[in-house]
Design a binder for these strands. Structure first.
Lengths: 330, 330
DNA sequence: CTGTTAGCGCTTTCAG
DNA sequence: CTGAAAGCGCTAACAG
């Protein structure tokens, strides 16, 4: 294992000089020595020991990313956006997946704190559980007390900089658009009732319907994934339009209707939320609310990295996109 | 910032003792002291400084994962498999995305080496470029010389433990299955000609056709993504069956045919490769060759973590799955 | 511009 | 079972 000291000796300079040329300091080093050091480092195959560097500097070049599930394209897109800015800043990223277990999220914050990462990004809906939220906040506060920076993509419940998709507004806009198509009877595939994002989407949707003087939608709960969408859709009947709170769930719903011999959009219209790009080629193409996922991830990391503790929440509003899965009535 | 020394002082024990109870050593510590230390740590809110630990131990608890693109479900699935085993072993994972730039892959190996990660996993097709491959090998060798472990998911070209999907065999089996359906004229959407995985798939497919005494397929090159599949498909004509070397490209092809008013499978059959789960609900459902993606990622990490430098290559064979996108002729 | 020298926080012999 | 002390490799004053 070649160390900086080896390089310094080999180049006939001091440790400090070698450090200055190899590991970007602001200090200048004379051209001749600089060359010697670089040569020695190359010949010996020197590689900085980042652990030692981190310890000495008291600051690392790593950021932590905590997501629920990387195979869910929603999280993959957000993570990708964040990773691009990390790359541009020369930061490495450490990822943890919670598989939707809030306890794991807390545990990851603790671990990332131990790693002394420069910042941590929490991506994904908060849960409606005071207890859990409080414990997470405590862990985050502990991390922040010692200089850690935190940002979140989700709901503004943690007291940290947050990029918050306006789920209510987006769902409400979607409801109005659907009503504009002539729909009067709706079902909502609502996902689990302990996650806030789906709850907000349901509330926004139902609220808009109420404002329009339309009957309340049939609300069906299930898991937050493709299977949940499928299961919930099997219970749907007597409505002309179904709103699945995520595109991924909408895919499940589409499959369920297909299996039941119910045509979309002829027999029933279906809309989702998120506008997942991998799913844009579905047939029928999915009406949805587009969220700038990658940008949300990027912005969140930028907030976390900003010199001063940002201003709190940055709201992102979705854009309603009507495609083939919803049709005008009458 | 609370240090181990603070804890030790607060508990009235030596640094060594505090270390032994807090950071799993094999040594035993008396019950009374153990309790004191744990209490002190909790009261003070102590968090291990992993950088210091890594430096002192000379070994980290992090593994590195290098993939081309996290938003591509192929890589997400493999990464997920690897991350699950990492989690089980208490390891954190650092991810780098190359965006298909081989230079970046080399750079990441160097960076991960500096981080002194326990192991690095290289996921994705190798490129057909001696020069680049040699440079990557050099970088890997340097890392391995100092105890680093490496495994790869792709082709066995790096002199490291590798999980290799048998692309030729899988594509050949697919070709035979398609010929069995009565198809005689084929086009292959081949992706770029510098990546080995797609080349192998093309070769396997064409080889099987030749063995069957069928005419050689029309081979169309393009980029390795959805857009590439779309672009290549626009040039297809006069064949009854199209093989896209990945499911993601097949999705693009499906879209292109739809836009051209060509029905699948009535007018032309389409098959892909990989069996991406997010794409299972496509209509028509995609015939493909299933690869156990998550398992491949898991196995690769297991090889990298195994006590002894594994046995080289572990071949995984794909399973042909015929669904709705391909139909029997006449 | 260059070198000396104290640490950074933790692990791990080596004694006791 | 417990403690003292010597590093792990690098950075950053501080002095020249």
């Amino acid at each position: 294992m070649v160390t900086l000291e080896d390089v310094a000796r080999h180049a006939g300079v001091s440790l400090a000089t070698a450090s200055r040329v190899l590991n970007g300091s602001t200090r200048q080093v004379g051209a001749s020595l600089r060359v010697k050091v670089e040569l020695a480092a190359a010949q010996l195959g020197y590689r900085t020991n980042v652990a030692a560097q981190t310890l000495a500097r008291g600051a690392s070049n790593v950021i932590g990313l905590v997501v629920h599930d990387l195979t869910d394209p929603y999280f993959a897109a957000i993570a990708d956006g964040a990773m691009r800015v990390a790359e541009n800043q020369g930061l490495m990223v450490m990822i943890g997946t919670t598989h939707r277990d809030p306890q794991r999220e807390i545990a990851y914050v603790s671990t990332l704190n131990a790693q002394r990462v420069r910042a941590v990004l929490l991506v994904g809906s908060r849960v409606a559980d005071e207890q859990l939220t409080r414990r997470l906040r405590e862990e985050l506060d502990r991390y922040r007390e010692t200089g850690g920076r935190v940002a979140c993509v989700g709901q503004d419940l943690l007291g940290v900089d947050t990029v918050v998709p306006d789920n209510r507004l987006g769902a409400a806009a979607l409801a109005r658009a659907l009503a504009g198509l002539g729909h009067r009877s709706f079902a909502v595939l609502a996902g689990p009732d302990r996650l806030i994002a789906p709850m907000d989407r349901v509330a926004g949707f139902a609220g808009a319907l109420e404002e329009l003087g339309l009957p309340a939608p049939l609300v069906l709960h299930s898991s937050f994934d493709r299977e949940g969408g499928y299961a919930a859709a099997t219970q749907v009947s007597g409505v002309t339009c179904v709103f699945a709170v995520t595109d991924v769930m909408a895919v499940g719903a589409l499959a369920a209707f297909r299996d039941r011999g119910i045509r979309v959009p002829e027999d029933v219209s279906v809309a989702g939320f998120d506008d997942i790009s991998t799913l844009r080629d579905l047939v029928p193409s999915l009406s949805t609310v587009r969220l700038p996922l990658a940008e949300m991830g990027a912005r969140a990391l930028e907030m976390a990295l900003a010199p001063d503790e940002g201003t709190g929440a940055q709201v992102v509003t979705g854009e309603v996109i009507l495609r083939e899965s919803t049709r005008a009535l009458g």
